[in-house]
Simulated assay, not measured.
Amino acid sequence: MRLHWSPKSPYVRKVMVCAHELGLEGRLQRVRTVAVMLRPNPDLMRDNPLSKIPTLVLDDGGTLFDSAVICEYLDEMAGGSLFPRGGAARWQALRWQALGDGLLDLLILWRNERERAQPLAELIESLTVKARAALQQLDREAAAMDAAPFGIGHVAIGCALGYLDFRFGAMDWRGDAPRLAGWFATLSERPSFRATEATDG
């Protein structure tokens, strides 16, 4: 399987964390791929018309995207337990994944906006308020996340917090969310997270 990949992408990191947890990282041929919002990549678009990563090209030539779909595919392939099969545990895991992915979405939009020549102040303020609200919610749920079996929600939230450190280093989110900070410190010691830290390389 070929994975359109970048060491900077938090959504690619989600896939790679899952691959490590499931023992599938050796099955993925990583293809370094540039995906920039303002410059569609014609090579990538042959596999994904949205020109987004991660995109997984299967051995039979089929393709899967986005990270949520790819992660669930890998979990099923390996017979894993990152996605609970049913009941309250499944909905909680999917909810946490949605919260982590949603936080990532707004952080990426925030970063893109602040890089513009004339950032829209109202948008920056709105994104800041939403990000802090998400972090406060996660801080309230840190004990529940700690008690729950490791799953896709932990992966998504961990990758969002890792991106926050990578691209928003000046933001003192740990001071506002100390329980979440402690949870993340423990999560970051997992081999799958240590092996997939974002780099500018």
Rank of each mutant, 00 (worst) to 15 (best):
L24K: 13
L82I: 03
L99G: 12
M77Y: 09
H20T: 04
A181G: 11
C159L: 11
L161Q: 02
W183R: 15
G102N: 14
T186P: 00
I124D: 01
L82F: 08
Q29L: 02
G26M: 03
R27M: 12
R30V: 03
R190F: 10
L138F: 06
I157R: 07
E21I: 11
C71W: 06
A170G: 14
S51T: 03
L44G: 12
R116V: 01
G175R: 09
Q137K: 10
R140N: 08
L74H: 12
C71H: 05
S188N: 00
Q137D: 04
A181E: 01
L161H: 03
G80T: 05
F193K: 00
D47Y: 14
P10N: 00
G26E: 13
P119I: 01
A143S: 10
I152P: 01
C71I: 15
G26Q: 05
F83N: 12
R111W: 14
I124L: 08
D43R: 14
V57P: 00
D47L: 12
L127N: 04
E25I: 04
R27S: 15
E113P: 02
A117W: 06
G182T: 07
T55W: 09
R194P: 02
L135A: 14
G162A: 15
A148H: 06
A121L: 06
P40D: 04
L123G: 09
A142C: 01
E125G: 03
L56D: 13
L161R: 05
D101C: 15
K14D: 11
E189H: 00
R39H: 14
A181R: 12
A195R: 14
R30C: 07
G102F: 02
V155T: 07
E21V: 13
L22W: 04
N41I: 08
A98F: 08
L109N: 13
E197I: 11
R30Q: 08
V36L: 06
L82W: 02
N41D: 15
A181Y: 09
R114W: 02
W110E: 00
R13T: 03
G153R: 05
G182W: 01
W96C: 04
L123I: 11
R85W: 05
L127D: 01
L38I: 10
R179L: 08
R32V: 15
S9I: 11
V69A: 07
C18T: 06
Q118E: 12
D66G: 06
A133C: 03
P119S: 01
C159H: 12
A88V: 11
A121I: 03
W96H: 08
D200V: 00
H20Q: 05
V31F: 10
F150E: 07
G102R: 13
Q29I: 01
G162C: 15
R179F: 01
A147V: 15
G158K: 00
R116A: 10
A89R: 06
G201Y: 10
G102I: 04
T33M: 10
P191D: 00
P191M: 02
A131E: 01
V12Y: 01
H154A: 11
D165V: 14
T128V: 02
A156E: 09
T128Q: 07
A68P: 00
G158Y: 12
G26L: 10
M77H: 00
F168S: 07
D47F: 09
A35L: 05
E76P: 00
D59A: 09
S67L: 07
D139M: 02
G158M: 12
E72R: 15
L109S: 14
L82H: 01
P49S: 11
P40Q: 07
E25W: 08
A160F: 04
K8W: 14
D105Q: 10
Q97A: 14
A19T: 03
L120R: 07
